[in-house]
Write a protein that binds this DNA or RNA. Structure first.
Lengths: 205, 205
DNA sequence: TGATGTGAATAACTTCACAGCG
DNA sequence: CGCTGTGAAGTTATTCACATCA
């Protein structure tokens, strides 16, 4: 029923709510919540309405309770193992990024196709050969992968991940990936984001 | 007139068209173009129609000509200097990323607030103190910035960039930024992208 | 004939506005 | 009285379908 945009906003609300919780704020209205988000109060209420009634009319939302609800909706309650394919500079940066761990994601399997990297350890994890993706991911029942490989290898890696039974892919390779239905893919193409900005630089201003 | 989504798709079309050009494809229909893009043929035609008539009825689009047209629309014809604030692992990865350079963006000014980093050189560029952002960017007339700083410093850095006359910001800090109207900001929040995927992992499958 | 360009129709998304509850 | 939850209204975006042109 709810769509992807709603889900992304829920994650944004969650970020704000956590911030508010740190500041010991206990109750928040949809109006106040949107002060640090590009969304309207009605939008917040509609988004939440997809999943239940979490607020108190005339009062607002209990911050802690709403955090728990959204975490439950997004499925952040349990820890999740993540595979990282492509241990270059970007891969290394993501591996070191604390933002993932904070929300229950733990990168716990590394893969690369470079013989000089295979077998080495980073952050206590051994880099495996990409040909072992299927074996390792099946054994360890890993369902989430992040790919930071060159565009030319992206489809091959995606095929291996699909064969390994992966369910969602966060892809940083600037390339279209042909993936069977049912597997969720989210591509972050940083060059394209910059190109868009170039448009606004030339036209909108 | 055209909206942000149209612009983003144009950048995607461009990526495919460049790929086709490398393969020596000379003519392409809107139908064939969408084989490697999540968009409909009608969508392609509508998007392009915002900016003119680039196709030949009964034939299709000349690949080379369409590339030139889209590059012109997006404003990719000229080289652009980019400032990078926050020279951590992610910043270093972006600095090394060839995808930006390929499309006319050149990271040519580096800033950090860490005394141990300030003054050092990476890729031939000296890391400057963030307090010098305004001075350096004004002098060199840099209008684009990429920020890869911790959430806690993001707003302060954004304020400095605004004071320096920056026009667009590609922000990787997981934090809302309060920016005056007229300045374009695009936030890539990788943790939030993963959180969204967690939802689909738990519900959609 | 075959693919574009485009008004008209549809679908998706957002905001409005207000009843109802604490 | 204030803020939620929500049907209705409005807006934006996408797809359809076809006239048109090479």
């Amino acid at each position: 029923m709810p769509h992807e945009k709603t889900i992304k906003r829920l994650a944004l609300y969650l970020r704000s709510l956590r911030y508010l919780a740190e500041k010991r704020v206990e109750i928040i209205s949809s109006e106040k919540l949107t002060e640090h988000i590009h969304a309207s109060p009605a939008q917040v209420r509609k988004d939440l309405a997809c999943f239940g009634e979490f607020g108190v009319p005339g009062v607002g939302y209990q911050v802690k309770k709403l955090i728990a609800e959204i975490e439950s909706i997004l499925g952040l309650k349990e820890k999740r193992e993540v595979a990282l394919v492509g241990i270059g500079k970007l891969g290394g940066a993501l591996l070191a990024y604390t933002g993932f761990r904070k929300f229950g994601f733990r990168i716990s399997a590394l893969f690369d196709n470079n013989p000089e990297k295979i077998g080495k350890k980073i952050s206590g994890l051994k880099i495996e050969d990409v040909v072992r993706i299927e074996e390792v991911l099946k054994r360890r029942k890993i369902k989430i992968a992040i790919t930071t490989v060159p565009a030319t290898n992206a489809q091959e890696v995606a095929n291996r991940l699909v064969a390994a039974g992966i369910k969602v892919i966060l892809n940083f390779a600037p390339h279209y990936l042909n993936i069977p239905q049912g597997i969720i893919i989210n591509t972050i193409d940083m060059a394209i984001e910059l190109e868009c900005l170039a448009y606004f630089l030339t036209h909108k201003i």
